[in-house]
Amino acid sequence: MLVHPWDAPHDDTEWRQWLAVHDFGQLAVNGLPGEPPHVQPLHFVYDAGRGEQGEVVTHLARPNPLWPALEAAPEVLLSVVDDYVFVPGPWQAAPDGPAEHGTPTSFYAAVQLRCTARIVDDPAEKAGLLNRQVGHFQPEGGSALAAVGEEPYGRMLAGIRGLRLEVTGVSAKFKYAGHRPREVQDRIVAGLAARGGPRDAAAREHQLRRRGTWRADR
């Protein structure tokens, strides 16, 4: 993923805070020889406190076709993208140029985690991973814990395999016109507010938060 200096996160805290509330992504696994990569949509939990760069935990059904490829090549990429919007060309036009000469583009936030995968088949460890996930996604409770040999989930453990992904590298990007002149940024902010599309408010918040923090001489 190309990351220009003006799109880079200010620090690790920025992308980690964003990732903490964006917990659905796509896991890319290298295919076996002659096969394309596997791309699996999934919910996951990122734990920044485990390992040098954090750990991701998730699980998938045992019949999933990606397991042989993952066993052959455990280096994977977890990609998360959200807060994306289309920006019309006139919004990005230079202050001293005609509006129709503006360049349309996309705004988005993205984090890519390069990971080393470890498959978890031990029933007790799988139960522990499931409980970590439920604790994240359902903190209000209301569901029984998974435990080996106990209802209601004990018998279901055989039907899944757990995944622990040790994060070995991070690429993060917040593409929100950080290098544009203030007048252009003001126009984009106003356009997002007026349009009010599904992700416009989140994109506008990113732009307002990050504006004025990038300098070409850094």
Score class of each variant (00 low, 15 high):
59 H>P: 10
59 H>K: 05
59 H>G: 05
60 L>H: 15
62 R>E: 13
63 P>V: 11
63 P>D: 09
63 P>I: 10
63 P>L: 12
64 N>R: 02
65 P>S: 10
65 P>C: 09
68 P>T: 08
68 P>E: 03
69 A>Q: 06
70 L>Q: 05
70 L>K: 03
70 L>F: 08
70 L>V: 02
72 A>N: 09
72 A>D: 08
73 A>I: 00
74 P>A: 03
75 E>Q: 15
78 L>Q: 04
78 L>P: 01
79 S>E: 06
80 V>M: 04
80 V>P: 05
81 V>I: 05
82 D>I: 00
84 Y>K: 09
85 V>D: 03
86 F>I: 14
87 V>K: 03
88 P>S: 02
90 P>A: 05
91 W>D: 05
92 Q>T: 15
92 Q>N: 15
92 Q>H: 15
93 A>I: 09
97 G>P: 01
98 P>C: 13
99 A>S: 05
100 E>D: 15
100 E>L: 13
100 E>V: 13
104 P>Y: 12
105 T>Y: 05
105 T>M: 01
105 T>R: 01
107 F>T: 09
108 Y>F: 14
109 A>L: 07
109 A>W: 06
110 A>C: 07
110 A>F: 01
110 A>W: 00
112 Q>A: 15
112 Q>D: 13
113 L>A: 13
113 L>H: 10
114 R>S: 13
115 C>N: 07
115 C>A: 14
116 T>S: 14
116 T>E: 14
116 T>Q: 15
118 R>M: 08
121 D>I: 00
122 D>G: 00
124 A>E: 15
124 A>S: 14
125 E>D: 12
125 E>S: 08
126 K>I: 14
126 K>V: 14
128 G>L: 14
128 G>M: 08
129 L>S: 09
129 L>T: 09
130 L>M: 11
130 L>I: 10
131 N>I: 02
132 R>I: 09
132 R>T: 12
132 R>G: 04
133 Q>R: 15
133 Q>Y: 14
134 V>Q: 02
134 V>L: 03
134 V>G: 00
135 G>S: 08
135 G>V: 05
136 H>L: 07
137 F>E: 07
137 F>W: 08
138 Q>L: 08
139 P>R: 06
139 P>V: 08
139 P>Q: 09
140 E>I: 02
140 E>V: 02
140 E>L: 10
141 G>D: 04
142 G>S: 01
143 S>A: 06
143 S>N: 07
144 A>F: 07
145 L>S: 09
145 L>M: 06
145 L>F: 04
